[in-house]
Design a binder for these strands. Structure first.
Lengths: 241, 241
DNA sequence: CGAGTGTTTGACTGTTCTCAAATGTCGTGG
DNA sequence: CCACGACATTTGAGAACAGTCAAACACTCG
């Protein structure tokens, strides 16, 4: 159940004591299902627990008065969607399930116990929120300085790398991407129409192919170079044995 | 010397024990000066200490191969510029002094001691990095979904609010902004030429006036409403007595 | 088979970019 | 105090990238 999360943890810190890992898992509430489209955390709310995605895709997003929406993160199995809501209290953005999801929550009270008693685990949780922040920096860099084509390529590189780290890639260079082009555009900050043209161009130049929810990367090295993708920011240590 | 930092801390958590505050201050190395334009932290480096700005302005930024630059944060007196480099190890971006700065560093070893011994202070440091992340989300929202005019207005609102919280505003609605329009454009993700036109428009519509390094906000309520600025994300509790 | 949704395409519009020249500001040294 | 150079800002013109609107097409599910 928690295997993707454990894998994600191990890829970030292979030295976490077994006791800490165990204590963390036991602090979670029993898993629940949420259906695609449902709100997992409301913008402006003050949650009393944080939510971990066990399976499925979720998105964090912020909305403007004119209805425009910016996705702030894409979360997959093994990701915390709002670990930061423990220190930060008020949610400055919302979280929604993009697909049916299995989730597990952990009460902020339990997180407080952890910060009081387990310094090592606390540092690891802190690290997880900082990796989110590093990812956000890449998104801002792409949004501000890269043309749509490179920006889209970078996001595909990011997703493939993260899915692989979570053990969610079955065939090399292929992954399921259960988003509409509208949603992908919300992540990149471009319109759905422009997403369509951008994907067509990525396909035409032979870098990547996204059809019917399945992305095939045609040439990883070229794609990564084109997007200036450097996975260091994801803080993935070597594959655990 | 550390008064802006202490003020910033107090605005984030008024319940930090005096002993923790004292221990934190004593963990810093003696203050140093760095001159405008010098690199404070190199992209790709693995610092063994984190840097606090005591006075002056610094910027965090990331550069692409084509020379385009995205500013990722603007840091003022009282801000940590790379507290995240303690858990994250490798810097995915650089930090440069925009003006002459007074800075103080704290060894990661000392931060480690703090995380081992002082859970309350550790949570506060974690919170500081999360406020940076929340600010980044606003920048991404602006970059992706707001036209330059609103985005620029939002940044002015943010800076005024943060400067005020750090005790750096002398006259209401007026503050010093020692950036070139080129640098301001790097923060917004637009060209210097477009910054000039955008500022002219903000001036023409009577919202804000930036001339010779000094910003005057003409109508705070209208500016904040126009930019959809809501300061909640800065996690400022009520003014300390 | 048909409804509903998502994607593609075309035509046109709008924002922002680039290049280039003009103007303004500031510090330095005569 | 003025002249000068360096740098920053403003303005204009044309180009590029991305947005909007609308229609055609494709896919999925009952």
């Amino acid at each position: 159940m928690f295997d993707r999360f454990l894998r994600t943890l191990a890829r970030r810190d292979s030295s976490l004591p077994e006791a800490s890992r165990q204590a963390l898992l036991e602090a979670f509430e029993p898993p629940r299902y949420v259906t695609a489209g449902s709100a997992m955390v409301e913008q402006g709310s003050r949650p009393d627990c944080s939510t971990l995605v066990l399976a499925g895709w979720a998105s964090r997003y912020s909305t403007l008065a004119n209805g425009r929406r910016q996705m702030l993160a894409l979360q997959i199995g093994g990701d915390f969607v709002d670990l930061h809501s423990y220190p930060l209290k008020t949610m400055d953005h919302g979280v929604a399930a993009l697909t049916d999801c299995t989730i597990a929550t952990i009460a902020h009270e339990r997180l407080r116990d952890i910060t009081e008693r387990d310094a090592h685990l606390t540092r690891l949780l802190w690290l997880l929120t900082l990796i989110d922040a590093a990812t956000l920096r890449k998104w801002l860099l792409g949004s501000g300085q890269q043309p749509a084509l490179q920006h889209a390529a970078h996001l595909l590189c990011e997703l493939y790398t993260r899915l692989d780290a979570a053990g969610l890639v079955k065939d090399a260079l292929v992954f399921e991407l259960p988003l509409s082009q509208e949603e992908f555009g919300d992540a990149l900050g471009i319109s759905a129409v422009h997403v369509s043209r951008t994907l067509a161009e990525l396909r035409d130049v032979g870098l990547a192919d996204w059809r019917r929810g399945r992305v095939r990367i045609r040439d990883w090295r070229k794609l990564a170079e084109f997007a200036e993708f450097d996975p260091t920011y994801l803080s993935l240590v070597d594959e655990p044995r």
